[in-house]
């Protein structure tokens, strides 16, 4: 896999979540995602950025344009140094939340992405990496 573009953005406020949506949208437009593909990726980014902010206490997102066997995609990596997730399977379940949300963010982001990886442990922070191919 080759990476042709990479950009790191902070997630410190709900205004930053809006900036992330706009940056991901413009990157998806640059690589000519379909409108549905673009909307799904931007929505997944919005859910994960909010999780980073609300549950992780802030962090950042790495936006990368990736190429592999002739296809182009966008890879987004959200990282925080928050409390981490003890039970990842439970956190992925629709309707489960430790906050005030609907519990759709993490599971929803997984459904909206082609590839989804999560790495988290109590006290170790959380990293979520998603890729959507064009």
């Amino acid at each position: 896999m080759t990476i042709s573009r990479s950009e790191s953005l902070p997630i410190r406020s709900s205004g930053d979540v809006v900036v992330i949506r706009q940056r991901v949208r413009s990157a998806a437009e640059d690589v000519r995602f379909s409108i549905v593909g673009l909307t799904k990726l931007v929505t997944a980014a919005s859910e994960l950025a909010r999780n980073t902010l609300v549950y992780g206490g802030g962090g950042n997102m790495l936006l990368e344009e990736v190429h592999e066997s002739g296809r182009t995609g966008l890879r987004l990596t959200f990282a925080d140094n928050g409390p981490g997730i003890a039970d990842i399977a439970l956190a992925l379940k629709d309707g489960y939340t430790t906050g005030q949300g609907l519990g759709l963010g993490l599971g929803g982001a997984r459904r909206l992405s082609d590839e989804f990886h999560i790495d988290s442990a109590p006290g170790k922070g959380t990293t979520v990496c998603i890729t959507r191919w064009k």
Binding site: V36, T39, T43, L104, R111, L112
Partner: peptide
């Protein structure tokens, strides 16, 4: 596209 995404999101 918003409707399609929203349903996939689970809403």
């Amino acid at each position: 596209a918003v409707a399609i995404t929203l349903v996939e999101l689970g809403m």
